[in-house]
């Protein structure tokens, strides 16, 4: 699959903001030999959305992140949440 992403750079004063938007997506052709593969083609058309990474502040119950060692856990978000629950 090929994705064409348009990158727009907006400069306001000294701040530079880069936004990316998908303008075109081309999907590979899968073999239509069997009913099964036709079914897959129809239900699993690969779609991707691109956006810029943002930090969010949100009320959450659990955190999914790259594996923490036990040492790192004390510093981690999940730890903060559990402490808050017990306070």
């Amino acid at each position: 699959m090929t994705i064409i992403v348009r990158k727009t750079t907006t400069i306001t004063g000294t701040k530079k903001k880069v936004t990316r938007k998908i303008t075109a997506v081309s999907v590979p052709t899968y073999p239509n030999h069997t009913d099964r593969s036709i079914y897959i083609n129809q239900t699993a058309l690969p779609i991707l959305k691109a956006e810029a990474l943002r930090a969010q502040s949100a009320s959450i119950n659990m955190v999914s992140g790259a594996t923490d060692s036990s040492d790192a856990f004390a510093q981690s978000l999940q730890s903060a949440i559990l402490k808050a629950k017990h306070s």
Partner: peptide, 13 residues
């Protein structure tokens, strides 16, 4: 509600 940790700002999602 599950937050996906921000990989650069680790106390944000």
């Amino acid at each position: 509600r599950v937050g996906i940790q921000h990989p650069l700002e680790r106390h944000q999602v």
